[in-house]
């Protein structure tokens, strides 16, 4: 112990010295500093709390603003959509109008063309009859009774024999509308006679439309609803071809 320099007296001096220092420093330094640290920590934590509250408030405000903004945005979007829809509808209407007008114009033009055709074909009908008579005279080599021939030809084209419509004989058809097709336009007298008979067959009431189709060559085709009465030359020729075969 002596060699190490350990000495009880010095040891005790050091211990008492330390205890004195401990008491002094504790009173004047450490306790105040620790108190101050705790106070400061409290202040800081309070400040942090305040800050967090403020942050929360700000967040709420931001949320509110965001909500308002999004509402406004959606409103604007809805309005824009409505406007667009309205504009589109208007545009469609305009287009439809225009199309309808165009269709009407076209129909009118078509009707005009039809009438013209009917007129021309009506004009041609006389000549066709004369040509047919001339051809027959040439073929047979004798003069034919011009008047009788004319009647024959008329009958051929109109399908009306001795004031009666041949197709309708013995036929019964029920309906409210009939379409009568002839190879060449019918004269007004023929038309009225055909109409009368067709109406009689239908049962007094109905509507009769006349059409011209040179493809059927001669006679009449009457269509009532889905029923077709074929008195045309082409139909007869077809039937003949069928039977020959």
């Amino acid at each position: 112990m002596e060699a190490l320099g350990i000495n009880l007296g010095f040891l005790l001096v050091q211990v008492f010295n330390f205890l004195l220092l401990l008491i002094l420093l504790r009173k004047f330094v450490f306790t105040p500093i620790v108190n101050m640290l705790e106070k400061r920590r409290e202040t800081i934590s309070k400040g942090l709390e305040d800050a967090s509250i403020a942050a929360e408030a700000r967040e709420n405000a931001e949320k509110e603003a965001e909500k308002l903004l999004s509402e406004a945005r959606s409103k604007a979007a809805t309005e824009a959509r409505e406007l667009t829809a309205r504009a589109e509808a208007q545009a469609k209407e305009i287009i439809k109008d225009a199309e309808a007008k165009a269709g009407k114009a076209r129909e009118a033009a078509l009707a005009e063309v039809d009438q013209e055709r009917v007129r021309v074909l009506g004009e041609v009908r006389g000549q066709v009859g004369a040509l047919a008579v001339a051809a027959a005279q040439k073929l047979i080599g004798e003069a034919l009774d011009a008047k009788k021939q004319q009647t024959l030809i008329d009958e051929f084209f109109s399908g009306v024999k001795a004031g009666k419509v041949t197709v309708l004989e013995g036929a019964d058809a029920a309906g409210s509308a009939a379409v009568v097709t002839s190879a060449l336009p019918l004269s007004a007298a023929e038309q009225s006679s055909v109409q009368e008979q067709v109406l009689k067959t239908l049962g007094g009431k109905g509507e009769v439309t006349f059409k011209v189709d040179p493809n059927i060559l001669g006679g009449l085709v009457v269509r009532v609803g889905d029923k077709v009465l074929d008195g045309s030359v082409s139909g007869q020729l077809g039937a003949l071809r069928q039977s020959i075969r």
């Binding site: 007296g9 010095f10 004195l20 220092l21 420093l25 004047f28």
Partner: peptide, 30 residues
């Protein structure tokens, strides 16, 4: 204990440290 007390050089160092710390505590920190 009846032991002799000398002023040793380490004791001087401790005293200087004591004086320094107490002076610091009383005259600067307080």
């Amino acid at each position: 204990t009846g032991e002799k007390f000398f002023l040793t050089n380490t004791m001087v160092a401790v005293l200087i440290a004591d004086v320094f710390l107490i002076a610091l505590a009383l005259f600067v920190i307080r």
